[in-house]
Each structure stands twice: as structure tokens, then as C-alpha cells.
Amino acid sequence: MVTNVTTITSFGRSGLYDWMIQRATAVVLLVYTLFILGYVFFNPDMDYLQWRALFDQTWVRVFSLLALLSVGAHAWIGLWSVSTDYIKPTGPRFLFQVICGTAMFAFLVWGVQVLWGL
């Protein structure tokens, strides 16, 4: 049952919005994963200059930022559904969500720093 505490911790205003964002971010991450895994797979002996040059291109940085934000939204919605399914008592569930949120924030800031702090 979705109580007010559950609703305010969800990502979007409605379940349908979450459902859509989940799919949208999934497609972004699908393309990004194939891009990166493909690049590393087909460039086994790439050197630092080539790897650095890849991420010096603005479109790769923007795409990586989009993927990073997508991971945040995708993971939040996913973990929110998991936590509301399995952690029934409000206190521990909220603690779990705060921990996930903080970790996500840390990864996001760290990721942006890597992409633009170079």
C-alpha cells in the first residue's frame, strides 16, 4: 500500500511518471553501455592519449553525464520499488533510501568531477 511516506520518497509524482522515466533511462543506459563496452572491446591496445582524446570530445562528456544522471534516476526508481516491496517498516526503509541517495549523490559528484574536473 502506498502511504504518504512512500509517495514522497518516490522519484516522480506518479507511478506512471516513474514507469516512463525507468524505461527512458534504461534505453539511454543500454546505448551508453554498448558504446563503452564496444569501444573498449574493439580497442584492446588503446593508449592513454587515445582514451583521453575520447573523453576530451564534448559529445562523449555530455553523453557520459546523461548516462550518469540516468543511472541516478534509474537506480532510485528501481531501489525505491525494491525497498517499498521488501522493507515494510518505515524507519529502516527510509534509512535504506537515505543511504542509497547519499551514495548516488557521491557517485554523481565524483563522476562530474572526473568528466569536467580534468
Binding site: 582514451w51 568531477q113 580534468l118
Partner: peptide, 17 residues
């Protein structure tokens, strides 16, 4: 993985590491 990514872009030494 983010740690490796950060290190790999930082410098030549990082990449080699």
C-alpha cells in the same frame, strides 16, 4: 569502477596503473 575510470583519465601513470 568509477575509481578506475577516474585514475585512468588522470594521467599517463594513472592509466598504466
Amino acid at each position: 569502477m568509477l575509481f578506475a575510470f577516474d585514475l585512468s583519465l588522470e594521467s599517463q601513470q594513472g592509466f598504466d596503473a
